[in-house]
Design a binder for these strands. Structure first.
Lengths: 119, 119
DNA sequence: ACCACCTGTCAAGAAGAGTTGACACGTCCC
DNA sequence: GGGACGTGTCAACTCTTCTTGACAGGTGGT
């Protein structure tokens, strides 16, 4: 098994931020903060379609902001309940800078810049 | 003085989050946290084109994360310097929930859900 | 005049996120 | 067998964001 990268790396923070930067997903967090809920009911209460909510939930879960668990109700129906994860992120210039340091993707090393600026 | 809307309203936080949820913009914040810089040089150092950087900077400025000021150098050239704003945002389920409360856009209050369905 | 540097904006294409409807499966009750 | 409810997934479409190249302007120096 490949080791997990649990540290708050740039990619992780990026995933969290892009997961949170959406009105629908913010409202989903708000709804789940009040009470845990299952998909169909949450879709009814928030007024969004099931496929749409499903996609948003799986985006939030991928970012580690909510957790879903499949449970069986008394009448044998399988319902997936979602809870908010107790996350806490502090956003400051230093935080962002530290995360950006671990984002070396596609950025080539500047071997030698042509500093011939006349000025 | 007129009261500013400094509170983390939903739209404001949404703008901040979507501004931060981008690898290029994260790297711009990181670069400006080290030292203030002007557009062309920043474009050179980050390896992005001027129009692209210009767009990202104006997105960051619109979110209040950086501030730009047009200054004149010794040789009379007009250069726009950018600084990071000393922002600080705390992201928790409660924070998001509070912000989502002020996001009542298009979401009608569920007057009564006794549509034809049972239950 | 040219060339260096700085600033900004525009249209248009490429890429990705959001959204919908219809489909698949399951259990339980009448 | 219907219907109610629950789950998930798929291909298409729309929409926003991203990205590029070419263009506009400016100053100062050789």
């Amino acid at each position: 098994m490949p080791e997990e990268d649990t540290s708050s790396t740039g990619e992780q923070l990026l995933k969290v931020l892009s997961a949170l930067s959406n009105p629908h997903r913010m409202r989903i967090i708000a709804a789940l903060a009040v009470e845990r809920n299952y998909v169909s009911r949450l879709a009814r209460e928030t007024g969004m379609s099931r496929p749409l909510l499903h996609m948003h939930l799986q985006r939030l879960e991928a970012a580690g902001l909510v957790t879903g668990s499949l449970e069986l109700s008394d009448d044998g129906k399988a319902m997936k309940f979602f809870d908010v994860a107790p996350f806490i992120y502090e956003l400051t210039p230093q935080t962002i800078a530290a995360a950006a340091e671990t984002l070396r993707q596609g950025r080539q090393e500047a071997h030698s810049e042509l500093e011939g600026r006349g000025q």
